[in-house]
Nucleic acid binder design. Sequence first.
DNA 1: CTAGGGTTAG
Length: 633
Amino acid sequence: MTAITPLTRYFSTAARQLQILASSIRKPESAQQIPLLTEDLYNQILDKYPDLKTLKKLHSKIFIDQYLHSNPSIGIKLMRAYAACGETRVTRHIFDEITDKNVVFFNVMIRSYVNNHLFQDALLVYKSMSSHGFDPDHYTYPCVLKACSGSENLWVGLQIHAAVIRVGLDLNLFNGNGLVAMYGKCGCLVEARQVLDEMPSRDVVSWNSMVAGYAKNGRFDDALEVCRDMELLRLKPNAGTMASLLPAVTNTSSDNVSYVKEMFTKLAKKNLVSWNVMIAVYVNNSMPVEAVNLFSQMEACGIDPDAVTIASVLPACGDLSALLLGKRIHEYVDRKKLRPNLLLENAMVYMYAKCGCLKDARDVFDEMQFRDVVSWTSMISAYGMNGQGRDAVALFSKMQDSGLIPDSIAFVSILSACSHAGLLDEGRYYFKSMKGEYMIVPRIEHFACMVDLLGRAGRVDEAYSFIKQMPMEPNERVWGALLSACRVHSNMTIGLLAADHIFQLEPEQSGYYVLLSNIYAKASRWEDVATVRSIMKSRGIKKMPGISNVELDDGVHTFLAGDQSHPQSKEIYEELDVLVAKMKEAGYVPETDSALHDVEDEDKEFHLAVHKAMMWHCYLVSGMVAEVFAIHC
DNA sequence: CTAGGGTTAG
């Protein structure tokens, strides 16, 4: 390289050559006209991680072969770029072609395998190093430790730890971090902590690895405590801390969610991952409104959502029936060419299913190149939750024909599809085949589905006998399914039995208490009614009012039954009176004939009806007929 | 060449 070449001229030449290259890519027939590229230019292009097409064109230039042997960095970058495209076979081919390797080639090869989750191959390359006369270095060990973490291979992990100590690298920051992560992932939290404590110096990654270890192994309080310890040491948690913490903050307390939210707010630099994690935290804590609104905020900040963002936020759209947003995201996915992506497509099927758009769900499902059990399960439950039990059954058979083995959750979805559609025999058949053919031990969810199936079909006595022969203690869901069946089929005797069991179990959910209070009132067991109320009061369980979400242009709005907080509340309710009159005119009769119906406050039922009417009105006015069927209360 | 994030039921 000539030292006097002005930098600007150098770059403009490079830019021009890049342009020529780019134009030749657009016109494949002129590929032969690619000009000679300098080594530096190859380096520059490869550093930008080109897509596979560009990469192959570059690679096919004969000149690269001479560079491959004269300039090791070209070979390394080419390997790296192929690995980034998931082409580990090509990476390996280049690796094998290089005759005079150095240790970096081995490191890059190992890392390529690790990044593509081929942990076994990574470890094989590592083990082959000595026979080629190379010693692993301080770059090799973190990579192979990651291979152990990824495959939870404690056995090799321990051997590597021994090797790391032998060569005196155990005090190295990166190796220490790798060891903490490896032990953490393998469930050896004491060892992870010990390595961490003995490290002469630690960085954020060290602490994050420890957080991840605790979080992955269910030690949620410990994970949070490590975060607090970090802050006490004046180390600022970052996006990685949030990501590591994620498993610990699913279905967690609102305090913990606030803690993460605060961590997010205080981040010095928010990146894509931090937004994604915060959205995932909301989604995993049943806070879809917050998730969707944060997603909008993210877009407003000009951050491009990636496939992970989309896969996280789509279920929230589904839970809110936010179809407009869901469709907009669908367009974004197509524009950004984010498909095929299994997790994202699965989430999209779920979103459309929850929005009541069976056809759209099915279209996405049919367009998928690869489908796993989750994909099929999503589509099966799509039919199930929309009452199309027969279609669910047909699809379940198709899944079996395709050679996939249904898992425990797949059976929950088909059982619930059968119960909602009254397919008694089919449900019984699947329950049997789950145990007999697939050796899946039924869990309490499956028993709850069966009770629901029998109960809805009117076999209340049978459902009760079924509960009595369960191998485990029935929970409130099982009894709740029975109680609902009794309510529908007016079976007071068994209903009271079910109620007494729920009463004893003191569930967290308010819905059960409402059912309890109703049946006790019906049976004139007023002292029990009073006890139910006092339990609810003492445990701070509030009756959940009917909630609906309406998606307007500027976000998701939550409405409560009887809500008067809206500034135009008066006008809305006046409009509703008109609507309700129309509904009654059209033959609407509020549900009051059930033997176990809530006798206490019927105007609440009215509110609910009014509330639904309001939603229907909103959707019908905007021509969104499908949404009318997707209203959740 | 060095960590970390996503999907399915009720």
